[in-house]
């Protein structure tokens, strides 16, 4: 296994920023390093040949982004989180807005969006909700839109769904198997729009009642987490909700005092100050 030093990692993130306008300069160093080493190993590249390829082959950038970003996710990850969503958070939003908007920021291959849509359908309110799912990786967005996953992933997804205690007897009610893939019912995505959006360099583009961004900001350093939280703050209506991963925390951020903790175990926050 090759190694790479911080100076070379900085050269790579600087090059990607200057040439392609993606900003990884404030990513957490340990995981960024592992991702770059992984790409070097997968593509059989040295540091110098990777830099050359990024410089000379613009089409390589999409493939690079696809491997660099972490796209490991599950349906109904942390079933207790989804139960709280169903039993407390969504009903609380509906007290004020019968029709509301959700942003899945950094949606990756779409498992959380799909989980949300299944939950909303089971609650009988899917038609009342507008969902926007964004990621900076266009390849993964295509995958998310297809709502198609390898059947081998479904064992874990099904286990989570059972612990979530959904109203269907099985997730199988929502998909058909086709040559090793679980193809979900596209009607579940009737109100979802998938868009390319960069959390780091992109602008605030809409206002939401709920923002989900679980296990995305762990790849950022604290400065960047701070900046992104400001964007989420601006993207939320007053009294809107923000959900982050179970081992993430806002307490180090400047805007932490503009939120209150609604559920500490599941890391659900509510914006209380503009």
């Amino acid at each position: 296994m090759q190694d790479i030093d911080i100076a070379d990692l900085k050269r790579i993130s600087e090059l990607i920023f200057q040439k392609y306008n993606y900003d990884f300069r404030n990513y957490a160093m340990s995981s960024f390093k592992r991702r770059v080493l992984r790409i070097m190993e997968l593509k059989k590249l040295t540091v110098e040949s990777l830099i050359k390829k990024l410089n000379d082959t613009p089409i390589f950038i999409n493939e690079f982004l696809d491997e660099l970003t972490v796209n490991v996710t599950e349906m109904f990850r942390d079933p207790s989180f989804w139960r709280i969503m169903r039993e407390e958070i969504i009903p609380a939003i509906q007290l004020n807005h019968k029709q509301f908007k959700i942003w899945h920021a950094g949606c990756s291959s779409g498992e959380e969006v799909l989980s949300m849509c299944i939950m909303l359908k089971e609650m009988g309110i899917l038609h009342d909700v507008t969902l926007i799912a964004t990621d900076l990786d266009v390849n993964i967005l295509e995958k998310a839109k297809s709502a198609t996953y390898p059947v081998k992933n479904m064992e874990l997804n099904e286990k989570n769904y059972i612990r979530f205690q959904g109203t269907a007897s099985s997730l199988k009610d929502y998909y058909k198997e086709d040559s090793g893939y679980a193809v979900f019912d596209k009607n579940l995505f009737m109100n979802v729009s998938f868009r390319k959006h960069d959390l780091v360099l992109g602008d605030v583009f809409n206002k939401f009642d709920l923002v989900l961004c679980r296990n995305v900001m762990i790849y950022f350093n604290q400065n960047l987490q701070n900046e992104v939280l400001k964007k989420f703050h601006e993207s939320l209506f007053k009294y809107g909700y923000l959900a982050i991963g179970s081992k993430e925390s806002l307490i180090w951020c400047d805007y932490a005092n503009r939120f209150i903790v609604v559920n500490n175990e599941e890391k659900i926050y509510k914006k209380i100050k503009d």
Binding site: S31, R35, V70, T73, I218, K247
Partner: peptide, 12 residues
């Protein structure tokens, strides 16, 4: 991480 803090990840 350098700087003496933890970083978590959900990588493969």
């Amino acid at each position: 991480e350098l700087g003496n803090y933890f970083a978590l990840s959900t990588e493969e």
